[in-house]
Design a protein around this nucleic acid. Structure first.
Lengths: 229, 229
DNA sequence: AACCGATGTGACAAAACTGTAACACAGCAG
DNA sequence: CTGCTGTGTTACAGTTTTGTCACATCGGTT
């Protein structure tokens, strides 16, 4: 069973380029030049990922994204927004309506492939699990709590989000920039060093139950959350 | 670590077009308008692929291809021949001298990209694979780890990059200068002997699991990563 | 065997990177 | 208004990494 990607884009030239790229990468492509066509395609065969143009005739891409994220059947499908450099695209607003990533036209084949791959990989380990348990460390989204050995661990909001992100992507290394992007969410004119400080705070919060060693430093690369030494 | 492509072509117009295409696809390009210039570029930083014009002033492309395929250091580099429709190009003769593919001018952007990708896929083990496994030694880019027999091997950032590069180009020999270029990345005014030291450090890091013997010295030429003694 | 250039090794100081604590500020509840 | 909490920044301390050297070895020649 191959992975299906739906592309909603009115410019034929871009459709062709993207279609070529995606096919090359081994995915299956569905094309739609309008929101109406997209609706049909989605009803017909639920795609695993949607590439959505920011500017579409009729119903705008952003509006449609909001709709998709409201529908129970489509809300979990990751969306990558396609924007032109000229568009006044607000990254915050994009993520606000539920886009998982965005890419600015013109973009390279390699970049598109990389982002598709990244989004698929990133959404796979469900970020929407209610309870995540990693080796006895338990994070509960509904009660917004972190427990270990029966004790509750105290930490700030940022540390909680960061831990949540880490526990959803165990073993993977993230650079400070990626963490700022994922944990702080979107536009950040924040010094990357700030990440270090929050890593420190997270470690301190996990220390009472000896889980601080799970937050590991990878010199020259970033940080990683792992149960292995 | 990006993929480098060397283009040897005397017509400026084609150089420009090809250069654009390649860059768009996310590769790095080196241009050479003559065989002499190509020699310098190759010695400087070994490319992963060579686009070679069939008809070149002075030493002909076909002749040069034969030379490249004889040299121990360059014989593994895939070559795509560029030919004009008018040329009496003998396909058989092309493959005979070691070309991996050929493409007839004028060609489309799409076609060139497709052929480059195809050749790289079947010759060079992708440099951007997530996990590379060579005879039990496993390097994982996503977790930034090197494992063997269940144990994780510790090494510095430079050693990690170097091992990654080596494992992506098994069996090939690289001079110190080429390693500086590919592993350190770009313009470096570093003493070539420094490479020796890092080779030493890499070996030491691989020693605990007996993989140090894979890092081999080729006297007078450079180093090689190989599973064969 | 003696010699010579090339490569292996260990030591070191500078540079780069990361850890920590302290501080200032904004938002907020009381 | 006042005290608290959470955040981002900064300065400084602590560690690791890195490029060079000096010297030991090695391989091949004469």
């Amino acid at each position: 069973m191959s992975i299906k990607i739906l592309m909603v884009e009115d410019e034929a030239a871009i459709r062709e380029m993207v279609c070529f790229t995606i096919t090359q990468a081994g995915y299956q492509v569905l094309e739609a030049e309008s929101v109406a066509a997209a609706r049909v395609a989605i009803a017909d065969s639920l795609p695993d990922l949607i590439l959505l143009d920011w500017m579409l005739p009729g119903v705008s891409g952003i509006e449609y994204a909001r709709t998709l994220k409201k529908d129970e059947m489509t809300k979990h499908i990751p969306i990558i927004m396609l924007t032109a450099r000229g568009d006044e695209f607000d990254k915050i607003r994009g993520f606000e309506v539920g886009a998982d990533d965005y890419i600015t036209k013109p973009f390279s084949v390699k970049e598109l492939q990389a982002r598709i791959k990244a989004v698929l990989r990133r959404t796979a380990p469900a970020l929407d699990e209610e309870i995540i348990d990693v080796d006895g460390l338990r994070l509960d989204m509904s009660s917004h709590r972190v427990m270990a050995n029966g004790n509750s661990l105290e930490m700030g909001p940022t540390e909680f989000r960061m831990l949540h992100f880490f526990m959803s992507h165990v073993e993977r290394v993230f650079s400070r920039g990626q963490l700022l992007d994922r944990v702080w969410g979107g536009n950040v004119y924040i010094d990357e060093r700030t990440v270090d400080v929050h890593i420190r705070r997270l470690r301190k919060a996990l220390e009472p139950e000896k889980y601080d060693r799970y937050v590991q430093t990878v010199r020259g690369a970033g940080y990683r959350f792992s149960t292995r030494l």
